[in-house]
Write a protein that binds this DNA or RNA. Structure first.
Lengths: 162, 162
DNA sequence: TTAAGTGCAAATATTTTGCTGTCAC
DNA sequence: GTGACAGCAAAATATTTGCACTTAA
């Protein structure tokens, strides 16, 4: 009886095993961090969290493992509009792609799943005869809350747009 | 008699004048580079080209000017799937957004304008009540040519997908 | 005149690499 | 046993900043 496709704990580790990729204590820690992360961690955060599980985890191992996960299409790399610095954020790839929206005023990141997005990608594949492996749609602007407060008051100091 | 809206040389400089932004010889050089660029320059390339027009242009001025242009929505910042290194690419914002597709095998960048993309953004604005200022859709995968050659021969050594 | 802009050098931030030793299989 | 993986330190890459001087408006 097949297990459900999404959110299964240990899915990343299972992937490694299936593909014959060697498992180490350090990788186990990093994979667990990625599996249990609620959202959008950058390399430094992943390092810190992984070190709590295995204090020997080194920064370079984090980068090497992230590269491995990326190459295998198991995680996605995001910019989130570079709201803080020039680094990248990572998230597990689960199910269908979603759009990331970053509020340039309050910094909130929201996500949006849209059938139109899937259709758009299908159109690209067909019209451009391009085989899509990764796709990233990131949007910057003002979220509903900030639009409201912005139009009413110039009182609360907005975070400067980058 | 009004000049055409697109591709008008000096358009960026005109923008600066309209908005009362101070013009300097260095900025003039950088703006000219952005205006005449065929495509997708990174900061180092912009620096080199600008220095040919005004040898005094410094790297920091390039970064400062790019930030200014970004803030004013006159250029877009791209990753192009980080095919070479972690830097960014810049292009003038002209007319409607386009999708960037990066071939992970041959490195070719292609572009695609799609009405569906515009509709998708409209949907996001409405459904999420989010006011979009910038959007970036980048796709990585295999272009038509590489799909063809890849399925037939393992002869030509593919550029490794990072 | 003077606020804004600049070059220069140094700092910061992020990611990668070389090397040598270790460990999973 | 051995090839893949690890830590460590140092390098490479990309971008930003502090400061004193210059310049556009």
């Amino acid at each position: 009886m097949p297990l459900p496709q999404t959110e299964m704990p240990g899915r990343l580790q299972a992937h490694f095993a299936e593909r014959g990729i060697r498992m180490t204590s350090q990788r186990r820690a990093i994979l667990r961090v990625m599996e249990t992360a609620s959202k959008h961690l950058d390399a430094a955060q992943i390092l810190r969290k992984a070190q709590r599980l295995d204090s020997s985890v080194d920064r370079s191992t984090v980068y090497r493992t992230l590269r491995l996960l990326k190459r295998h299409g198991l995680i996605d790399e995001l910019d989130l509009m570079h709201l803080n610095g020039e680094g990248h954020y990572y998230e597990r790839r689960i199910g269908s792609d979603h759009i990331h929206m970053a509020c340039l005023r309050c910094g909130k990141i929201s996500e949006f799943v849209s059938a139109s997005f899937e259709r758009l990608k299908d159109q690209v594949e067909k019209d451009c005869r391009f085989h899509i492996l990764v796709s990233r749609l990131e949007i910057g602007g003002y979220c509903a809350a900030c639009r409201a407060s912005q139009s009413q008051s110039a009182a609360s100091p907005p975070a400067p747009p980058r």
